[in-house]
Every structure is written in C-alpha cells, then in structure tokens.
Simulated scan of single mutants.
Amino acid sequence: MSGSSSRRARTAVSVALATLSLTVLAACSSGSSSDVPGGKKPAGEDVAKQAQSAPDTAILPGSTMEKIKQRGYLIVGGSQDAPLWSQLNPISGRTEGFDAEMGRMLAKYIIGKPEVKIVSSATETREALLQNGTVDVVFQTYTITPKRAEQVAFAGPYYSSGQAILTKKGAGGIKLPADLNGKTVIAGANTPAIAAIKQVAPDAKIVTFGSDPECVAALRQGRGEAYVQDQALLVAAVKDNPDTTVVGEPFTADPYGIGLKHDDAAFKTFVNDWLRKIAQDNSWQQAWKQTLGTVVEGNPPTPPAIGGVPGS
C-alpha cells in the first residue's frame, strides 16, 4: 500500500483507536508488542495453532530459518492499528487480523509454535528494518513493486488487493464492477479509483470527496450507490460502519508480498514453499474467513500465484 493510502487508513480508524485504554496506547507507543508467552490469549484454537510445521530437513544449518528457530520466536515488522489486518486487541493483548495470523502461521511453520514479536513499522522504515536485521519479515499490506525489490526481497504475493466496491448493506443491485454503469459512484479525489471506475463502468456518474471518511459518510447518506477504493481501506471502513459491506473481489491488482532481507535466496524459497502449502491445505483460506471474510461477502478468493508479478 502506498504511503498516502496508509495515512488515509490510519485516519479512517483514528476515532476507534482513541477509545483504547491508556495501557494499550502505552504498548503501541513502545514500538513493539509481543504474542510470545506471558501475554493473555483468548480461549479456543486459532488457525496458526493448528497449522503445519516444516520438516527438520527444511531448516538448513546456518540459515535464517535455523536462527529464528533457535531464538524461539519470529520478529515481524507490522502494524497494530490496521483493522482486520493487524490490530492490537486491548482485552487479549494480542494482535489480530489477516497479516497477524499469517505471521503466526509462518512462525508455527519455522519454530513449531506460533510465537511472534511484532515491531511497529511504517511505510518509510520497512526497508531499513529488513536491511539492518531488526525484523525477520514484514507483513504490512506491503505492495510488491520492482523499485522496492531493488532494496528488499519479496516472497509471494500472498494476497491480491486492489480497487473494490463498498455498498450499503442490503442495497442489492451491485455485485460486479459492470453493475456500476448508470449508478452514482463515490471515489476519493485524485485517487486511482477514478480511472478504474471509468475503465469498468464508463456510464457511471462519479462524485468525489476529499477523504475516506467523507466518502463513507456520503455513501451512508445516500449521496451515491457505491464507493470504490482499495479493498484494504474498505474492510477497515466496514469494521467501523457495519451497515456497509464489500461486494465481490478487487477488480484491479495490488499484490501484497512478504518483505524479506535482500539476497537471502534460501529464506525466500522457504517462505514461498510455505505459502504454497498453506494454500493447498486450506490454512490460508481459513485465516481469510476468520479475518477479512467477516466483512467481505462471498467465498475466499484464490491465493495469487507465487512469483507471478514483477519484483516477486
């Protein structure tokens, strides 16, 4: 996700975050949080606890995988304020969401248990955190681009986001991008959504607003029949506005990758092999259902092809 998109996402959830306790705010400001033993965890099993572990032969001597296994936990660069992706739960003290669950599943695969330490990272710091070895991986809606791939490596893509459609719950009539034809469609001013709408629905009437909260408010007020924006932002909007829903899958491509240190071919191969396995054994789909799938209508999407985009 771009820096501007990340800022818009933070703005969209700022009101909700303001309600967190002082304890949670202090934890967030410390720069890292931990899901390693000692924190209070919710009852019940999650996807990561039931996920598979790597065979001993896959943990090569002297490799990054061996270093992580010997340490006993995976260090992930990520967020704590991204609803449905990676957000700190103030009650359990646990980070929840699709990215967070993916990090725990990777930890389980390497270590044999889903132990993760999350180091807060930002768009401007992700590359540095990987380059200097502060984190092992980055899970943070990290869009794969050839330019970024000059500084870091990417496993994946593990998720394909892109422009998607938000409507009022129960509105009906819009299931596919072509259904936007003849409708009044809301978009953020100067965002990629405008060109995307024109491409798939040239007869749509586009109205623009300056921010994501304004766009969502306009939809809820009936000033448009749909709102088009990056799916990662829309799922955050649904979290705070349960009278809205995301319909269908993204209709443009924004591939998210797992950030890795550059020139660690063995670790990249290992992580890509893991991604293929969790797609085959349905773990990826289960993680989607329990996170993004709670607000995105329909069945889990097909995981993207590994190495299928430039820079991966």
Rank of each mutant, 00 (worst) to 15 (best):
K113T: 11
K113F: 03
V238D: 12
E249A: 12
S160I: 08
L233Y: 03
A149F: 10
A155R: 13
G311T: 06
D243W: 06
P310G: 09
P114V: 04
G188R: 13
L233D: 12
D35H: 09
T291E: 05
K40G: 01
T141F: 04
N181E: 08
S211E: 01
N132T: 02
N132K: 11
D243T: 13
A189C: 00
A153R: 04
T294G: 05
C28S: 09
A27G: 08
P192N: 07
V246H: 06
S6A: 15
V13T: 15
A48I: 10
Y227W: 12
S33E: 05
R7M: 11
R126L: 08
R7K: 14
Y158A: 05
Q52V: 13
S161G: 15
A9G: 13
S2I: 01
A226T: 12
G170C: 02
D81G: 09
R126G: 00
T134N: 05
V116N: 04
D230S: 06
V152Y: 08
A204I: 03
I111W: 09
L260C: 11
I165V: 13
L17K: 13
D281R: 11
G112C: 06
K113Y: 09
Y109L: 06
A178I: 03
T208E: 14
A253L: 15
P310T: 09
R104P: 01
G44T: 06
K289L: 11
P146E: 07
I59V: 14
K289E: 10
Q285V: 01
G62R: 06
D273F: 00
